[in-house]
Every structure is written in C-alpha cells, then in structure tokens.
Design a binder for these strands. Structure first.
Length: 862
RNA sequence: GCCUGUGUGGCGGAAUUGGUAGACGCGUUGGAUUCAAAAUCCAAUGUCCUUUGGACGUGGGGGUUCGACUCCCUCCACAGGCACCA
C-alpha cells in the first residue's frame, strides 16, 4: 500500500515531541502549585523489550484524560516508570548470556523511545525502574518497617512450587493449578518463607470496597470473593481413644444448625492427626499418596475426582446425642481452609452425600423445606435451601438462622468452641528463590535469629558476578555475598538469599512517583497527602485480585507504619478491554503472522511465500504464541502516532475488547489527513484570527455555528463519561459539516475559522501532534496543550426548531417541525393538524393524546 | 455448579439513561475527477412486500407502559471470574 503523505507525519510528530520535552510542558513540581490537582496513572509496564498494541491503548486512554484535565485547568501528575524486576530477565540471561541488568535496562531504553514516539504527556523527570538501587533501598526500609510491626514474618509452610521457573508462587499467581507465567503444573513443597500479614487486614480490605465508588463493580465483587469472608462455628470433638498426643479434633463449619444430621468426621490428608496416624499405618500412607495427593487441582481433575475415604477406626461422641461419629480421612477436605477437618452432614452437602452413599453412612435430613410434613427424603441431591429444623431435638421448628444462633450459644456455654469468622484469603508469601529482584534485607544468625540489616548498611545490592548456567537461584551459590557477619553478635551468619516478589515492587510505586528522588525515606508524607489517592487509575482487568488487592493492603500497612495517611490508593479505576486480532493457521495447524498471509481476489487466504491455503482462525486475544500480533512501532512509522491513537480510541468503547484491523487504522489515518487538509486548504481565505464573527452571515454559516456549539457540548460530556468513541463520531460529524460548507460572505469565513479552530482544539487530546501543528498554522503561539478547554455558547448550542415524532398507537406516522420552546398545547395542536395524521385519524376515535414537549406526541386512537 | 457481564445491519459500534433504532466509521455499489491509477469529492446502502406507501426489525418467549435496545420474569448463546472453601 502506498501512503500519500499530505503532511510529513514523521517530522511533524517528532518536532512537537521534542518541543514538549524541551519546554517541560508536562512536568509538575512535587508540591503542587494549586489545589486543583489531578493524578492520572496507568499501570506501569514490564520492560519486555517492545511496546505492544495493548500498551498503545492503555497509555493513550491515560494520555487523553491527562490532556483533557490539563485543559480544564488541573495541575496533572502523570508519571511513568518500569516494573522491571522479575523472571523474564533471568530467562533471557539463561537463553542468550545477557546479564539481567543489561537486558532490562537495554529494554527500558528501547521502550522509552517507543513510548515517547506515541506522544504521551508524561512527566519523564519522575521516571524510575523498580530494579533501580534507589528504589530497592527504600523498599528494603519498608520491608524492615513491616518486620518491625510484625506485618512481615517467616514461617514454614506448604507452598506452591513452580518446577519450571524453580520458584515459589503466591496463591494469587496460581491459575487452574498452573503457574501463571510458566504454565507448569504447580507442586506442593514444604519451605520456610517470608509472608505478609494481609489476613490481618481482611475485614478492612472488605469494608474499604464499599468506600471506593468509582471502581467497576465486577472488580469489587472479585475482590470480595477472593477475601471470602464466612461466619460459622469452630468447635472441638473429644476423641474416644486419644492417640499420639491428640485428644480432640477441631472443626470449622458454616452450618452449625445441621449438627444433628452429622454422620462422620472428615480429616484432610495433611491434617496433623492424619500424618501422625500414617506413621505406623501403611494402608493409610498408601491411601494418602494414591487418592489424595495424586490428583491435580485443575478443573477437570476436581470434577472427575471421586470422593474417597479411609476409616481411621477412631470415633468421637456426638455432643448432644448418645451416638458416636466415625473419623475418616477424606480426599476432598482441604488443609488450607478452616481447620482441615469437618463434620459431614450428608443430607445437606453434596460432597458429604456422595461420600456417605459410598461408605454407607446415615443420611438424616435435619432441615426440611417450609410446608413439608415429616416425610422429606433425600435421594441423590443434598438439600441446601431454606427451611425448618427437624430431627434435631431442641432445634426442631426453628428456622436456620435461629438454629445457628442456638447451637453456637450452647457450644460456647459448654466451652467446646466459639463463633468464628473464617476467610478464604491467606497470608501473602513474598519470598522468591530468584536473582533479579529486590534482596530481602535480613541476615540469619544461628544465635540471634533473623536480624535486620542496619539502616546505614542499606541498600543490600545484588552482586553482579553471578552465573546462570544452572537453574535455580544463583545467590544461593554465590561464595562471598551470602556469607556475612551477624550485625548483632559479629558471628558468622548467612544473608537471606530470597528476593521479594515483584508484586511487592508494584504495591507502592504510585506513592514513590509523588516524591521519586527522596533518599531519606520512601516518600514524603506531605507530598503523598497532596497527590494521593490516584484520581484516575487505568489498567487491565487481569490485575483485579493481584496487584489491585496488594496495593490496597500496602496503603493500609504503610499507614500503620506511619509512612502515609491514605488507605485507598486508587479513587477511580478504569479497566480496559484487551486487543484482539484475526489469527491464521496453515494446513498443519501452525500459527502464522499476519504479514505471512494475503487475501486473494477470490477471497481465499494464502501463504505469501508457499502459496498454500491458510485457515482463518477467528478473532482472539493478541498473543505471541498465536502470532496474531501487530508491532505498533511500524504503525507509527507508516501512519503516525496520531492515527494509531485515534484508531484505538475510536473503534470500540474502551472497556470492551478492540479488534485491531488494517482497515481501521487506515480509516483513522485518513481522518488525520482530512483535518490537516481542511485547515491548510482554507488558510489563505481565512480572516485574521482576531476577527469576531459578525451577524452578517448566511444561513449555512449559522447552521455551522450551531453545530459547533452543539458538538462542543456533547463532546465534552462524552469525554467525561469515557465515551471516547462517541466523542470522535461527533468530531467527524463536525468535520463533515465543515467539508460541506461553502462560505459566501466575509462573515461566513469568520464562522469557518471558528469552526476549524474549535475542531482542532477539541481533537487535541486524541491527535496532539497534527492539532498543535494546525493551531500554529492558524496563527497561535501558545501550545494547545496549555490552552483552556473551549466553552460552548448556551444560546448557539440551543436548537431553535426541533423535529418531533408523531405516533399513532405507538407507531411513527409523521414528523412535525416546531419552535424548540413550543409548549404542550401548541405541540398537540400542531400534531393533530398535520395532514397525514388527520387523514390517518379520520375514521378513528381519539382516546388520549400523550404530549412530551420537545420529544414526542403519541395519539391513542381506535 | 456459583458469581459477573454481553447479545443491535455484511462488520466495529451509536442512541446524552423510558420517547424518531441503526449516529459515526469500515465495507459494498454507483457517479465525478484522471490518459490511467492512487488519493479526494458526491450519492445510495437494516430486511421484506408490486409501487405513491406499507409490514417486520435491537438473541428467543412472556410481561409492565400511551410508548421498551433501555424496566421486570423466563429461556438460549457467548465472554470473564471463582470453584471439593465445609
């Protein structure tokens, strides 16, 4: 395709980018100059090496908001940095011998240039990378404050182990039983790890969700569910035959009301009592390894796994009835939730029912639907609905809520247990057995235990002389870095070789941006008070329970450590949709890049080189593995940044997915050129920029002025509502009207100038380069970026005449044109006097006439 | 299974929140310009009916209303999230 450059896109765009940078147009001081501040932030990128189209969309949205808010008189903080620690750097080191640092900073340089080429309004003076030593130093301070406060602690526990990345994963990083990056099946390992006490904040994180109104409901629901608060009863059952030091079993239940229906006790395979029993019971050992630990945690594995049990022979007495319950080890009980033990009520829990049928245990319904008379029978389906208690002694006749309260009261009185709130959320493991991260500033001493590195010895920096030939953590193999003296007793000690998870890095970067050069403390509290919370946060939905939950937790923890006063870091959150693209495969099923295929005249797709037929495989999320990717930097070169920006903003609402298409970018490019042409072609005839629009203008010019102000009104509102695609549609309408306008008089030319100027000004947030160029061509000196947003004229925006629809029985039958301020009576008369309406009503009786002035008339007739 | 969304022409989508469905763009067709092409400009473009005109039409079915893409019930499809959480 040949491209006809109406104006030199490359040189013009780069020129303005340089000017903005030289004059620091988008820089703001740490302490804002005015009270009218606004903080716009997009989730910062991982420097993978190349910008992708998703970045274009994410950062253009933030950029449009920034430029719009600046025009509205806000002092806008819009910083940019790099989430630059993490595994890919190490994998690259393994693959091609780069040092992770070299690889990372080279990528940052490349991507910084790409981001600048997009014309984004960042305050580049604030840029930092989380792998910077300065950043890690402050982060180590934060970690030690957390340690001091007991928010960071060590414990031995079963952890998710990714066998491919040789690294521990947080629960939030395990998807469908697989590592979120490597895709490898996650194993369970017993390791000593650093954890953050996010569970202490569970209630607060839950309650806080109600205070952040401008978040997508979907994200809040996902976080609520992840925290997973449920109220119930924790109680103990004494063993009839105490064994191995165990004399009772603790269980947790959310259905204490069903206790009379209990027919067994279930233990997790990892429960301490199970482990104890297994020591001298080979059959139990075999059961644990064959039936409990073998099955995967994937969706399919769970759904097909049969309920299996192992009778331990132990029994416990029922607390209220004269009978014993057998104790089973069961493969469906998780150690990680509650106490790892339950009482099974087959009638009211499907899993328990499946289990009971298999091992022939009692199934006694104790909650029956309202109105059932005694003969309620459970077949293959457990009853989990509402109802009245039955077969339950003193609970009979109560509803579920009352029965729960009664049991809890009695168990507490018997000192056998207590009401307990249980969370699904577990503490956040932040240790990673990898090199390219922030070192944990702790030294392990045999005598003193875990000793913090003293503040004057911070930062703990990574050694450069490491080797990556072997998998695993090179810090652990490093001869000198690891062996140090204990800061307390001076004896031989060992440095902590784990580094912090990268989600730790991204949990406070938004605060560091307020005060990025501070060496004494992570950030100045006053400065964060002025800028935080972030007024508008923009990013992908995939972080709904990872980054967005951690950052909310960090704000609270940082507040408790005295670093800042803000609890909720992000006031408004906007989650954008992903980018999709057509995908292609050859006859063997191999994915092909878009540039490897071409469409023939007969609508058949073939391979460019081999000419073999190609299968079009549907529009799916852009990903390297499916090869349906587009390199945005090539787009900047051929179409320019303005066209790329316009396209990603105009084709879809920002929260929905966007299908990338060559035709779409082509259309955007044409519009950029069209605006350029419309202004430059009129320039010679336009009057001086100071001329005001006279009244001596044609009707056509009056219509144009009317449209200009009407557009302005709608357009501004649309941007505020994030309806960017609708705003751009109105912009195009205005451009179409200008294109069809033939100026006659001198006054018409001033009207044309006004229309062109407004069009250029309001197009600026989307197409900053071409509009700055045209604004200058129109004779202005000030940057459009620094202009105030134009205000519409109420009178000019108002319609004088409006067209009103006239319906008969709800069906459109005619249209009438009226003065815009026509009242009800006038409107009704005009509608009934309309010729068509009269004809259609001639043989009918009018029952009722509904008149909504300015909108519609509906005649109800028979 | 549970919890969220979404469903509108050939395609992406609009409808300022109950009041003229299909704005705007892409595509297609026709025309102008051109030696020709590209670019540009103009016009048409939901479906069906024999027309001046009419009928149908926002995933299906039902309801509320003078009036429903919009609100309610129900079913279907797709997408996302969670999931042996007691």
């Amino acid at each position: 395709m040949t491209i006809d450059n109406r104006y030199n896109i490359q040189s013009t765009e780069v020129k303005w980018q340089k000017l903005w940078a030289e004059h620091k147009v988008f820089s703001v001081p740490n302490t804002p100059r005015s009270d009218k501040t606004y903080y716009v932030l997009e989730m910062f990128p991982y420097p993978s090496g190349n910008m992708h189209v998703g970045h274009v969309r994410n950062y253009t949205i933030g950029d449009v908001i920034t430029r719009f808010k600046r025009n509205q008189g806000f002092e806008v903080l819009h910083p940019m940095g790099w989430d630059s620690a993490g595994l890919p750097a190490e994998n690259a080191a393994l693959d091609n011998g780069y040092h992770p640092r070299e690889w990372t900073y080279k990528n940052i340089d490349t991507m910084r240039a790409q981001f600048k080429r997009l014309g984004l309004s960042f305050d580049w003076d604030r840029e930092f990378a989380t792998s910077d030593v300065d950043y890690q130093k402050q982060q180590q301070r934060i970690f030690l404050s957390f340690y001091d406060k007991g928010i960071a602690y060590q414990k031995e526990s079963m952890v998710n182990w990714d066998p491919v990345d040789h690294c521990v994963l947080a629960n939030e990083e395990v998807e469908d039983g697989r590592g979120w990056r490597s895709g490898a099946l996650v194993e369970q390992k017993h390791l000593k790890q650093w954890f953050l006490k996010i569970t202490d904040y569970a209630d607060d994180l839950l309650d806080g969700l109600d205070t952040i109104e401008d978040w997508p409901e979907q994200v809040k629901i996902m976080q609520r569910h992840w925290i997973g608060k449920s109220k119930g009863l924790r109680m103990s059952f004494p063993l009839n035959e105490p064994t191995g030091g165990f004399d009772k079993i603790d269980i947790f239940t959310t259905r204490p009301d069903t206790i009379f229906g209990a027919s067994f006790i279930g233990l997790s395979s990892q429960h301490p009592l199970t482990q104890c029993l297994a020591k001298d019971n080979d059959k139990l050992c075999a059961f644990i390894s064959d039936e409990c630990e073998r099955g995967g945690t994937s969706e399919v594995a769970i759904e097909t796994a049969e309920k299996q049990g192992f009778d331990t022979g132990l029994t416990v007495p029922h607390p209220f009835e004269d009978r014993d319950l057998p104790v089973y080890v069961a493969n469906f009980i998780l150690m990680g939730y509650g106490t790892g033990a339950i009482f099974g009520v087959p009638a009211h829990d499907q899993r328990d029912l499946d289990f009971a049928r298999k091992y022939d245990l009692d199934v006694t319904p104790v909650v029956v639907p309202n109105g059932t008379d005694g003969d309620f029978v459970i077949e293959d389906e457990a009853y989990t609905g509402d109802g009245i208690l039955a077969n339950s002694d003193f609970l009979n006749g109560l509803n579920i809520t009352a029965a729960k309260a009664e049991i809890i009261k009695r168990i507490e009185a018997m000192e056998r247990g207590e009401a307990k709130t249980q969370y699904r959320l577990r503490d956040w493991g932040v240790s990673r057995q990898r090199y390219w991260g922030c070192p944990i500033p702790i030294i392990h001493c045999d005598d003193c235990g875990a000793v913090p590195v003293p503040d004057d010895q911070l930062p703990v920096t990574l050694p450069d002389d490491v080797e990556f030939e072997k998998p695993g953590n090179p810090l652990e193999r490093h001869p000198t870095w690891k062996n140090v003296k204990c800061p307390q007793c001076g004896q031989k000690a060992i440095r902590e070789t784990d580094t912090l998870a990268t989600f730790f890095d991204s949990s406070w970067y938004f605060a560091r941006f307020c005060d990025p050069k501070n060496d004494d403390t992570p950030f100045d509290k006053e400065m964060t008070n002025r800028w935080l919370p972030v007024d508008q946060y923009v990013g992908g939905i995939e972080h709904a329970v990872l980054h967005l939950l951690y950052a909310r937790f960090f704000s609270r923890a940082l507040k408790d450590c005295g670093y800042m006063d803000i609890e909720e870091p992000f006031k408004r959150l906007f989650t954008l949709g992903m980018i999709t693209h057509q995908s292609y495969r050859d006859a063997q099923g191999n994915w092909l890049f878009p540039e490897q295929v071409v469409k023939e005249d007969n609508d058949q797709w073939i391979h460019v080189e081999t000419k073999d037929p190609v299968k079009v495989s549907g529009v799916i999320k852009m990903s390297k593995s499916k090869k349906n990717v587009v390199n945005p930097t090539e787009i900047f070169e051929s179409y320019g940044a303005d066209a790329a920006r316009l396209f990603v903003m105009s084709d879809s609402p920002p929260e929905k997915e966007l299908e990338w298409s060559a035709a779409g970018i082509d259309g955007a490019w044409r519009f950029v050129n069209r605006i350029h042409r419309q202004v430059t072609e009129s320039l010679e005839q336009l009057p001086d920029k100071e001329a005001s629009v006279s009244d001596d203008i044609s009707d056509g010019a009056k219509d144009l002025r009317h449209l200009v102000h009407k557009t302005l009104k709608y357009y501004t509102g649309a941007i505020e509502r994030f309806h960017f695609n609708s705003a751009i549609a109105r912009l195009r309408e205005l451009s179409n009207a200008i294109g069809g306008f033939q100026p006659q008089t001198e006054g018409d030319y001033t009207a044309l100038r006004e229309a062109l100027e407004i069009m250029v000004r309001i197009a600026n947030p989307f197409m900053p380069h071409v509009t700055e160029e045209l604004w200058q061509a129109l004779g202005h000196e000030k940057y459009l970026a620094d202009m105030h947003w134009p205000k519409y004229d109420q009178d000019l925006a108002k319609d004088d005449e409006i067209t009103i629809a006239v319906q008969i029985n709800g069906k459109l039958r005619s249209k009438i044109t009226l003065a815009a301020d026509a009242d009800k009576a006038v409107t009704e008369q005009a509608a009934l006097n309309d010729d068509r309406i009269k004809t259609l009503l001639s043989d009918k009786d009018i029952k009722r006439v509904i008149v909504v002035p300015g909108k519609i008339v509906n005649v109800v007739a028979q």
